[in-house]
Simulated assay, not measured.
Amino acid sequence: MLYADKYRPKALEDFDLHSDVSCNLAKLISQNDCPHALFYGPPGAGKKTLILALLREVYGPGVEKLKVECKPWKIELPTRTLEVEFTTLASAYHVELNPSDVGNNDRYVVQEIIQEMAKNRPVGVSSERMFKMLILNEVDRMSKEAQHSLRRTMEKYSAACRIVLCCSNVSKVIEPVRSRCLCVRVHAPTHPQIEARLRAVAAAEGWALPAQLAARIAQASDRNLRRALLALEACKAQQFPFQEGQAVAAADWELYIQEIAAEIRAEQSPRRLHTVRGKVYELLVNCIPPEIIMRRLALELMQKLDDELRQSVAEQAAFFEHRLQEGSKAIFHIEAFVARFMADYKNFLLAAMA
């Protein structure tokens, strides 16, 4: 089992990184008040862990008896029958899914799931908690039509279903949905907090973790606790016992993006653009989110530039990332950003040589 799962807090009172948030949630549950909720914060901050602890607080250990279902759904629309197939993670008390997996059909899927849950109430719970919970991940990637549909559905089935939303960018969730939820901000842990958690995991495993190595892992994690624990596990696999000067291994996809950035700076030509396109495709095929590719590539390209060109690259990256969010083919917008950078960088080099 990965350390990120093995040492995940199980109950709300076990949270030391977000003690204020967990105490407020526990207080609400003790008062039998469980509204719709929206958890938002950066990746690796602990949103999913807080949601799982909330489920255990409401329903008890029964929520840990999970089953993965991948079944086809036939949704009757006024003009046609929509057939979709998607995967859900469910227990007797809750259902968890990612609406963005079904693309533009997310509005119909969410409505169908909530209506199905409203027909089946949970058993073995108190009368104040005779409702199921629907966990929706990556709500910020849902279409606006699906979010508006969710707003109406939240009101209609509020007695039989509580909805818990999880996202990284709360600004992409429409205001009517946010206003109907208890918004919970889960902030990223600080570097000292990550170092403390790394030392606690190492002590539980019986390891001697040097302070310098823990500090470097925390710095490389970019305040992502899950990433820090995975890096600790990778360091243990590479070299044990730990050494103070031991290198922190980067993820393969990060090294691949560094290689792409080096190739872009080395040559600006249509042939090199075609090569880069193939490598970006390879990253997308391996399920690296296009937003992460765009952001990381921009940061790598800006490392060895002067201030004037760095500002221009940041502006172009923001422009094409916005188009990436609005479009349907990620490769088009990433390739357009690379082509724009190649043109600007080549003009900069020619001007410097003149």
Rank of each mutant, 00 (worst) to 15 (best):
M1S: 11
Y3A: 14
D5M: 11
R8A: 06
R8P: 06
P9M: 03
D14E: 11
F15H: 14
N32S: 10
P35R: 09
H36K: 11
P42C: 03
P43G: 07
A45I: 02
K47W: 04
K48I: 08
T49W: 13
R56S: 08
G62W: 08
V63D: 05
E64G: 13
K67V: 12
K67R: 15
V68M: 14
I75W: 02
P78F: 06
N98I: 10
P99H: 10
D106Y: 00
Q111W: 03
Q115W: 04
Q115M: 12
A118Y: 03
R121L: 12
P122N: 08
G124D: 08
V125G: 00
S126K: 11
S126N: 13
S127P: 03
V139W: 09
M142H: 04
K144D: 15
E145P: 02
A146M: 08
Q147A: 05
S149Y: 02
R151D: 09
R151T: 13
R152E: 07
I163W: 01
V164A: 05
C167I: 01
S179D: 12
R180W: 04
C181K: 07
A188R: 05
P189V: 12
T190C: 04
E195N: 10
A200N: 12
V201K: 00
A203C: 13
W207A: 07
A211K: 13
Q212I: 08
I217A: 06
Q219M: 12
A220M: 09
D222S: 15
R223Y: 10
L225T: 04
R226K: 06
K236H: 12
A237D: 03
Q239A: 13
Q239T: 10
F240D: 00
P241H: 09
F242I: 00
Q243D: 11
V248Y: 04
A250V: 11
E254A: 05
L255V: 01
E263C: 06
A266F: 10
R272N: 12
R272M: 15
V280Y: 01
L283F: 01
L284H: 08
C287H: 11
I292S: 06
K304I: 11
D307V: 15
L309Q: 15
Q311R: 07
E315R: 15
Q325W: 13
Q325G: 05
S328R: 09
F332G: 13
I334S: 03
I334Y: 06
A336G: 12
V338D: 02
F341R: 03
N347Y: 09
